[in-house]
């Protein structure tokens, strides 16, 4: 299947006269009030196969990875001066750009196919978008993007520009527009950070760092006394870095516009002995201001009788 044509199965459905919409009734009613007419349910899929963490990189190397591919990377070295096969003398947090790129490619193709269907219907926009991604088997992730295509009453047929899209529908969309924002596109991204633990991280994540405290790295527990809590710097940094990377990657897709209604998801896959993969998804609607900011009056406060 090429990326630029609506599959035959969908064509049959889209060719019929009547519309189908994934909108709830209140959303449907609000849509009509806004002058948006639903023309059909549109969707896109993509099943992606993941590279196995860059092939051999699932095994621990002899030294930290290079930082050639431009992602976030930070290296920690053992303060103890031991040389032992048991003692990991270096640790590294590294952004797995190939995972991020695979995710982006999968999401983008599914999204592009949905827009393709919307274009085929002559729609101006797609509202109430839902997207899911799930792993059906090892290393395969499928992306599904679904929404309701709408035509704007009075707008030119088959507008030259791409249909706009938004996760919002119904009254929430009406309120967004009332607040002075026009939706541009749904945007989503994933970040992935691999933590290779070094001796200190490993000791702390395994809970025996306290007995090593006496060895005396800077910032380490005072005399190894039990009860003085120790933060695990490397892992903490990875958790924050994953979120910041997701935000930065998404910001690159905003082109200076605003991200509305962001949804953050985070997943940690512990691989043992402090090693882990931290992943973070971020999605939302890219919106653009079309009129000046005009705050509403403070709403009435109510109590419901029931």
């Amino acid at each position: 299947m090429t990326g630029s044509s609506v599959p035959e199965a969908a064509e049959r459905r889209l060719a019929t006269e009547s519309f189908s919409s994934g909108l709830t009734v209140p959303d449907f009613a609000a849509c009509l009030q806004m002058g948006l007419r639903p023309v059909g349910l549109v969707q896109g899929f993509c099943a992606m196969q993941w590279g196995w963490y860059g092939g051999a990189q699932s095994l621990r190397g002899l030294s930290p990875l290079g930082v050639g591919d431009g992602g976030y990377s930070r290296v920690w070295y053992c303060p103890h001066g031991f040389v032992s096969a048991e003692h990991p003398t270096w640790g590294q947090n590294a952004e797995q750009t190939w995972v991020e790129d695979a995710w982006a490619a999968g999401f983008d193709s599914a999204f592009a196919r949905m827009l393709e269907e919307a274009r085929a219907l002559g729609a101006n926009g797609v509202i109430g978008v839902k997207d899911t991604s799930r792993s059906t088997q090892a290393n395969v992730t499928e992306f599904h993007v679904l929404g309701t295509a709408v035509k704007l009453e009075g707008a030119a047929q088959g507008a030259a520009s791409d249909p706009w899209s938004t996760y919002l529908a119904g009254q929430r969309l009406a309120k967004l527009i009332e607040a002075g924002f026009a939706p541009v596109s749904v945007v989503a991204t994933l970040s992935s950070v691999r933590v290779w633990s070094y001796c200190m991280t490993r000791a702390l994540m395994e809970g025996y760092g306290y007995s090593m405290g006496a060895i005396g790295a800077s910032g380490w527990a005072g005399g190894g006394s039990l009860g003085a809590a120790q933060e695990v710097d490397q892992v903490t940094e990875a958790r924050i870095a994953a979120r910041q990377i997701a935000k930065e990657r998404l910001r690159q897709r905003l082109g200076g516009d605003i991200l509305h209604g962001a949804l953050v998801g985070s997943f940690v896959r512990e691989l043992g002995e402090g090693d882990q993969v931290v992943e973070c998804t971020l999605r939302g609607t890219r919106v653009r201001r079309f009129k000046d900011f005009d705050p509403i009056e403070a709403p009435v406060v109510t109590v419901r009788l029931s």
């Binding site: 299947m1 599959p7 199965a9 969908a10 899929f45 993509c46 099943a47 992606m48 196969q49 993941w50 590279g51 196995w52 860059g54 092939g55 190939w98 790129d101 695979a102 490619a105 999968g106 193709s109 059906t136 395969v140 499928e142 599904h144």
Partner: peptide
């Protein structure tokens, strides 16, 4: 297909269908 990021067109097609 080990070690590559590729789309699986058959899967995509089946899910669509």
């Amino acid at each position: 297909t080990v070690g590559q990021n590729v789309e699986l067109p058959n899967f995509t097609q089946a899910l669509y269908e």
